[in-house]
């Protein structure tokens, strides 16, 4: 067992974990943050995407022990004061989800995408989400949602970065 201290969605957590525990399993099983999903076993699908010190990572490819000392944001932590993050709102308004399974990872990746590039073109959005698979939407409305959120965030001068 290894002891780790992480800050998850603003709350500090101390836990003993098996060294082989993946960050995604730590989040889901120890912290009951089941919004972060597991869709594959080869780090391809992106359903497990979270922010690690502000940058998107696939939490199936990070050991919990590697996150020791880090700050982690999951889908459960991006709404503030009862207000959805602009990407949450945009995914809802633009019908950017159907079954909802890829959605948390898609939104977390999009947060990092807009942090790095607040005014992405359609091609840049598509390239930026290349690591997240959706099987329902054909990506059409996901691309629209990210573009709409980018516009809204620029207009509101909301920092894209969440921590």
């Amino acid at each position: 067992m290894a002891q780790i201290t992480v800050t998850v969605n603003g709350t500090t957590e101390h836990h003993d974990v098996e060294p082989r525990t993946l960050l995604v399993h730590f989040l889901r099983e120890r912290l009951s943050l089941t919004g972060t999903h597991v869709g594959c076993d080869t780090s391809q699908c992106g359903a497990c995407t979270v922010l690690l010190d502000g940058a998107s990572v696939k939490s199936c490819t990070v050991l919990a022990v590697q996150a020791d000392g880090a700050s982690i944001t999951t889908i459960e932590g991006i709404a503030k004061d009862g207000q959805y993050h602009p990407l949450q709102t945009a995914f809802w308004e633009q019908h950017g989800l159907q079954c909802g399974f890829c959605t948390p990872g898609m939104i977390m990746s999009s947060i990092d995408l807009l942090r790095r590039n607040p005014s992405p073109s359609e091609a840049e959005i598509r390239a930026g989400l290349e690591g997240n698979i959706c099987r329902c939407t054909g990506y059409h409305n996901i691309v629209n949602a990210v573009a709409a959120a980018a516009e809204q965030m620029r207009a509101a001068a909301t920092p894209a970065h969440v921590n």
Binding site: L33, G35, T74, E76, A79, L97, F101, P104, I107
Partner: peptide, 21 residues
Amino acid sequence: IKRREDPRFITGKGRFTDDVV
């Protein structure tokens, strides 16, 4: 009409089988 199921999915509160403990 905007979908009524979406708030739970965009906040990570969907309840899929593997989420049940």
